[in-house]
């Protein structure tokens, strides 16, 4: 080793470009792996059904489900509605309940966590209602509201409402006392501190709550539609059972799964936007 090896001096931009390229390459690799994972899963499923390992009365092949998906886009048989109508019906119910839960639950939790007097007033009622499983409200809501949108939206609302309240409450309770003290030394009023310090501090927990709420809303929706509905994805699944059509059941499940994933992704986007400072 006579002469020193020539080290390349990279400019700042080149180095940044290199780091970014590396990150992008890793991301691309992970995306490819995820897609391959899904494809392998579908392939095994397809082969298992086609080769007759599983009786087609119990499990439909992915290709059959896909064919049914195309048919169901225009054909209302056997459950009485085309797929689009079922999806819309389900979305309407779940989103109504979900957004109501957010609009009512988060402010309630935040106020409860910040104002001691309000907490003492509301908390006992909330604690009484909280452990009741949402599904157990179904018979009563049918009596009250029939089987229309309001009945199901109420049940969905209830299931999404509880995590919204609890997380907003816990989140704002965890506001760092130093931050509160700092705002006080600025002469801020209690409401200003609630608004400018308490609420932003609670947001991480609030988002976690919304995530749970979304999952609950979607899960409860299907239960509600299986018990009290005349259309919707849950209803379609129920009909699939009555007509012994596993492909219909599976189509319902797959669509529910895909919509759920889409919602979670959208929520993730919103969260990244709002909590961008965490990175």
């Amino acid at each position: 080793m006579g002469s020193a090896p020539e080290t390349k001096k990279l400019t700042q931009e080149q180095r940044i470009a290199m780091v970014q390229e590396k990150k992008r390459r890793t991301q691309r690799l992970y995306l490819t792996l995820s897609i391959i994972g899904i494809l392998v899963f579908l392939l095994i499923w397809e082969i298992a059904s086609d080769a007759g390992f599983v009786n087609s009365r119990y499990l439909a092949a992915p290709s059959t489900i896909f064919k049914l998906f195309i048919t169901k886009l225009t054909d209302p048989n056997p459950d009485g509605a085309v797929l689009g109508v079922n999806i819309l019906a389900s979305l309407q119910v779940s989103l109504t309940g979900f957004f109501l839960a957010i609009i009512v639950g988060i402010p309630l939790g935040l106020l409860m966590g910040w104002y001691g007097g309000f907490e003492s007033f509301v908390r006992p009622i909330f604690e009484l209602v909280r452990p009741i499983p949402p599904v157990s409200w179904i018979p009563l809501t049918i009596v009250w509201l029939g089987i229309g949108l309001p009945a199901k939206a109420f049940i969905v609302f209830f299931s999404a409402f509880v995590p919204c309240v609890i997380n907003a409450y816990t989140g704002i309770k965890q506001t760092s006392p130093v931050l509160i003290n700092f705002a006080k030394t600025c002469g801020a009023s209690n409401f200003t501190i609630f608004w400018k310090v308490g609420i932003p501090s609670s947001l991480t927990m609030v988002f976690a709550g919304v995530r749970v709420a979304l999952g609950n809303a979607w899960a409860t929706l299907v239960a509600a539609e299986m018990l009290a509905a005349s259309s919707g994805l849950g209803y379609m699944i129920l009909m699939g059972r009555q007509f012994a059509r596993p492909d219909l059941i599976l189509l319902g499940i797959v669509v529910i799964g895909i919509i759920g994933v889409t919602f979670t992704a959208i929520l993730g986007r919103v969260e990244n936007r709002v909590l961008g400072w965490k990175k």
Binding site: V178, L179, N181, T185, C186, T192, K196, W277
Partner: peptide, 29 residues
């Protein structure tokens, strides 16, 4: 407001930039 404090523990608002943190007092006022 005539008495200000630099705290023992970090008391910056984590969701605000340096500039926003520094100007927060007059902003609240």
């Amino acid at each position: 407001p005539r008495i200000g404090m630099v705290f023992q523990k970090t008391s910056l608002l984590p969701w605000k930039t340096v500039m926003e943190n520094v100007e927060v007092g007059p902003k609240m006022a």
